[in-house]
Each structure stands twice: as C-alpha cells, then as structure tokens.
Design a protein around this nucleic acid. Structure first.
Lengths: 263, 263
DNA sequence: CCATTCCCACCTAGGTGCGAACAT
DNA sequence: ATGTTCGCACCTAGGTGGGAATGG
C-alpha cells in the first residue's frame, strides 16, 4: 500500500470558518464532521477553489456575472483527486465522501434563489481498473446522451440571497445510486464511469410555479463545477489508497482505522 | 406504581395511513416511529380530531372557511390527556412526545402556504403536583402577557397546498426549553405551567419578503388547536402513569421497558 | 475474471428516563 | 420540601468498508 507522502495538509477548519449559530430552529444538519478532522496546521492556501462558468455562456448582457461559488474542503478533494477519486454507488443509495460544500457570493441579498446540484458524465467512456499498474483504462463506450441527470434541490431552497451567503451550503445528504428504477429521487449513475458534480444557482422564478423542478431552465441559471471533484463510480473500491484515505477521513468509517482492530 | 388498567387502545396505524412514498430526495424525516407501535386493534374511532378556529374570527367574508386541520395520533394524545399530559423541558431542548402531527384539507392546491406551530399558555396559573392525591393544584399566578410565543415554521414551508395536503405534517423535531436565553430558536416555556400547541396555516404573502417570520400577521392566518394536546411542563415527570405511558410508547425510551432490565 | 449484492461489526449522531447531586 | 441539572446506560436511526456469496 505504497502511498505518496506529500500527504501533509492545511487547517481545513481555518479556511472554512463555521456556521457558528443556527439559522433557525430547522433541525437539518450542517457542518458535516469531515471538517472536524484536525490536521497539521501549515498555512492558508486559498488557491484552486475557483469555479468555472458553465459551458453555455448564456446572457452576458442582462446580469453582471457577480455570482461566485467557492468549493469548501478543496484540500481534501485534491488529496483524493491526486489518487483518483472513487465514489461507491449502491442500489439503496450511498452518500458521497467528500461531500460537495460551497460558499456563494455575489447574490442579491433580497432576492430568492434555488441552489441545486447534479452530476454529469465527464466523457462517454467506460473504465476498468488495472490493479498491477494501479491505473484506470478505457474499457468501452457509453452513450449518456439520452438521459437527463436528476437534480438535487438543496433542501433550504428557496431561500434569500442573504441567507445563502451567510451559510456554508452543504450537499452531504445527496445519495448516489446505480438503480435506474430508483424512486427516492437519488442521483442515478452508471458504475465504472467518470462524473463531476455541478452546482447551479437559480433566481426564483415567479412566472412558473416551479414548486418542483424536473429540469433546469435554459437561462437565468449560473452553473459551477470544480476539477478536483471529478470521480469514478464503483460498486467496490478499486484503489486501496482511496480506501485508506476514505477510512482515514470519513468519521463513519472510523471502525476500520488501524490500531486495535480485532477480526 | 399502582396504575389504572384500562390501558387498552386502538390501532393508531390504521387510523393514520402512511406517507408511503417520499416526496422527493429531501432527507428530512417524516412518519415518526411512534406510529409503528402495534396495539390491540379495536375499532376506528374518528372522533375528537376537530380543529376549532382561532379566537379572533377574522374575515368571515373574503375566504370561505374551507381549510381544515385534523390531528393525527389523536388516540395516543387522548390516552395521555386522560392522565394529565406532561412534557419535559430542559435547557438543551426536549422533543415532545407525542408530537403534533396533522393532516390539512381545503387548501388551494396551486397556492403556496406556510404551516407553523407555536405553544401558548392555557391560563395564568402555576401548578404543583400533589403526589398523595395524584393531582395538579394551582400554586400561584404568572403573567405571560409580555412574551410573544416563538414560532416554529415547518421546515417544508413554503410549499404548495397540493404538497401539504398529500403528506402528514409532522412537528416531531420541535423542541421545548426552559432556557429563556435560548439561541437555537427552540420553543421557550416555563416549567409547571399549562400550555397547548397551535397550528397555523398561512398563505404565502408576496407583499413582504417574509423569508423569516418573527410574528404572525393579524389576518390571513387560520389557527387550529386541539383539547387533547394540552400539557403541563415539568423538568422531571410527576405522575408515574405518564412516565409509564411514555416509556411504553416512545421508541427512544425502549431501554426502560420492563422485562430484562438489569440495574 | 470481473463486477455486484448482501449481511455484518463498528462507527456517528442523537433521543430516552434514571438517579444522584445540586439549588432554592 | 420542592424543583432543576447533569452524567449515564440504553435505545433508535443510519452511514462505513469488509468479505462472502452471487452473477455475468
């Protein structure tokens, strides 16, 4: 289990700040525990958390592009990305680790917005993992073009720009599944494919009573994604370095951390 | 621990139905487990779950009073009420058991509504429990008039009438506290006083951007309450019959049920 | 051979009443 | 005497990866 040793890291907590006070009595979670991992505090590197605008540069006139979305926990994502992030998908649905968490800036404090996440294919390839070379190889083609990705509307939606900007927006409850018949509105993906999560910010539209959203409108939506959040879907981890890093960092996997494991 | 033995009951489950399918991917809970208790099925008594309109009969003209709110789990509430319901309040906040759960009818499916709960004093008396007579006695007076009760806005708010009517609306995450300095937006009550929960249905108001609500508007709100949900606040249970019924019915207290308790 | 599924021990997270200690 | 607080054991609820079993 040889493992690149530039595995020093920064104080994620310091970079992130905290939603120190609950917004209201809403009992939904925030600030997932992965942030609570202590690391050797080095220094504050506020680098690659730069969102790049969506592929379709729609409407460059009407709105000035003030909206910014910044990935939180980017350092951890990059640790995974450097190895080759894998996400398990199951029939019942599996959370992502790390989860997508962002900070948004440049909203109109008074307006209402939806914040939405989806996951889109990176390419049309199917992959397989070659153990002896510890590498992912192309193993075939897939046509994703006929399926529209499901949308995960952040449960706080709709919400004022002010409130969105005050908190860290966490998508830690999102679940990925390989069950195409899923009826729990989880995000459906194919195993052994590469994907990347996207975050959409959409002003509340009073025209349509879009109390439930099945697909994104073609305009008035700002879309962001982040290189380091790309991942390959699996039903069981392929790269043991990924397994190790997951166990190290995901509090729910603490039971698999080394010391006194019996059995 | 002598205890009245007319503790037979009805099939709560049959009366209630179920939200059999999740609304969407929203991971918030519904259908709390208290409903899953099996009981000797007797028969369906659909009696006292009648909401009575608010004290101020505002605007009898504009809207026809179609909105109805029906208490769910009324049988269990009545079991407690017959003994004298007690609710524990703590500094950290304590859930109610039973919790307030309602079904709403008569909304306009297309309109957006807030559904809100609060808890108001039943009288201005302080009470004490007299053990040897197993009774609550008046022990003094309190002036509640200077404090406005906190509102618990149901986390699904705002939401379409259609969606509200399709589900059972559960307030099981509401927490009661005796900490007047509470900063977690829990419901603040005084111990040893009698209270009753109320449910408010309010059409979304586009005038004010009431993204957050501190107090109810004086009109356009329908208010409902239910005799059997009245309770006395305590910091430790007074009546042992209440303790027993709580332990019997609240899944989280299962550890205190009789059989093989060691210690 | 490769990928998926299922059950499991082991965690996190948090809701119970108990009973001793504390406060008034 | 009466009311409150705190730590605790014991639950519910559900998120981990392991490893055996299953399936192409």
């Amino acid at each position: 289990m040889a493992l690149s040793s530039r595995a020093q890291a920064f104080s994620v907590e310091a970079l992130v700040g905290r939603t120190s006070k609950r917004k209201r009595q809403d009992p939904r979670k925030e600030a997932p525990p992965e942030l609570q991992e202590k690391e050797d505090g080095k220094e504050e590197e506020r680098s690659g958390a730069t969102g790049k605008k969506s592929e379709q540069p729609s409407e460059t006139l009407e709105e000035k592009d003030a909206i910014q979305v910044e990935l939180q926990g980017s350092e951890l994502w990059k640790r995974f990305h450097a190895i080759g992030t894998e996400m398990i998908i199951t029939k019942a649905g599996r959370r992502m680790f790390p989860s997508v968490r962002v900070k948004v800036k440049g909203l109109d404090p008074g307006k209402q917005y939806y914040v939405i996440m989806d996951v889109v294919p990176v390419d049309s390839k199917r992959y397989r993992y070659v153990y002896h070379s510890s590498q992912w190889m192309v193993a075939g083609n897939t046509d994703h073009s006929c399926i529209t990705p499901r949308l995960y509307v952040h449960p706080d939606s709709p919400c004022s720009g002010e409130a969105w900007m005050r908190q860290i927006i966490s998508f830690d409850r999102v679940k990925l599944t390989n069950n195409e018949m899923d009826d729990k509105d989880q995000i459906i993906l194919q195993s052994m494919h590469k994907y990347k999560p996207r975050v959409h910010v959409m002003e509340q539209d009073s025209r349509a009573s879009l109390s439930w959203i099945q697909s994104l409108p073609t305009e008035g939506v700002k879309t962001f994604s982040f290189e380091e959040t790309e991942f390959t879907t699996v039903t069981a981890y392929q790269n043991q370095q990924i397994t190790k890093l997951k166990i190290d960092r995901n509090p729910f996997a603490k039971g698999f951390r080394d010391p006194g494991r019996n059995k």
